[in-house]
Computed example of a mutant assay.
Amino acid sequence: MTAPDPADLRAAVWRAAAELFARNGYPEVTIRAIAARAGTSPALVMKVAGSKEELFHRTATISAPVLPDVPLSRLGPALVTELVDRQRRGDLEHLGRAMILRVNAPDPECVRAKFLSGYVEPLTRLLEGPRPELRAELAVAALLGLATTLRFFESPTLLADLDAAEAAYGPIVQRLLDGA
Results as ranks from 00 to 15, higher is better:
Val173Phe: 08
Thr40Arg: 12
Ala168Phe: 01
Lys114Tyr: 02
Gln87Trp: 08
Pro108Leu: 12
Glu109Leu: 15
Ile100Val: 14
Pro122His: 12
Gly76Ala: 08
Arg32Pro: 00
Glu109Gln: 15
Thr59Gln: 14
Leu83Thr: 02
Leu143Tyr: 09
Asp163Gln: 08
Gly170Arg: 02
Ala18Asp: 10
Glu128Leu: 09
Gly145Lys: 02
Ala113Phe: 00
Val45Lys: 00
Lys52Asp: 04
Ala36Lys: 02
Leu55Thr: 01
Phe153Gln: 11
Leu162Cys: 04
Ala18Asn: 06
Arg151Glu: 15
Ala168Cys: 01
Glu121Asp: 10
Ala105Asp: 05
Gly25Thr: 04
Arg10Ala: 01
Gly25Gln: 08
Tyr119Thr: 13
Asp91Ala: 15
Ala139Cys: 05
Thr2Gln: 06
Arg125His: 13
Asp178Ile: 08
Ala141Gly: 15
Thr81Trp: 05
Pro108Gly: 11
Ala78Pro: 03
Leu20Ala: 09
Ser155Met: 02
Met99Ser: 15
Asp91Met: 13
Asp85Thr: 09
Arg151Pro: 01
Lys114Ser: 10
Ala78Glu: 06
Asp8His: 00
Ala22Val: 05
Pro130Arg: 11
Phe153Lys: 11
Asn24Tyr: 06
Ala147Gly: 11
Leu162Ala: 02
Ala139Trp: 03
Ala11Glu: 08
Ala168Leu: 01
Asp107Ile: 02
Ala3Asp: 12
Leu158Cys: 02
Phe152Arg: 10
Asp163Ser: 10
Phe21Trp: 01
Glu54Lys: 12
Ala3Cys: 09
Lys47Trp: 04
Glu133Lys: 12
Val111Thr: 15
Leu116Ala: 10
Leu92Asp: 13
Leu79Arg: 05
Met99Cys: 14
Pro71Leu: 13
Arg102Asp: 02
Leu123Ala: 13
Met46Ala: 14
Thr124Ala: 06
Pro130Thr: 09
Gly25Glu: 06
Trp14Cys: 12
Val70Phe: 01
Glu166Asp: 09
Ala180Glu: 14
Ala136Asn: 11
Leu44His: 05
Ala17Val: 07
Gln87Lys: 03
Ala142Cys: 12
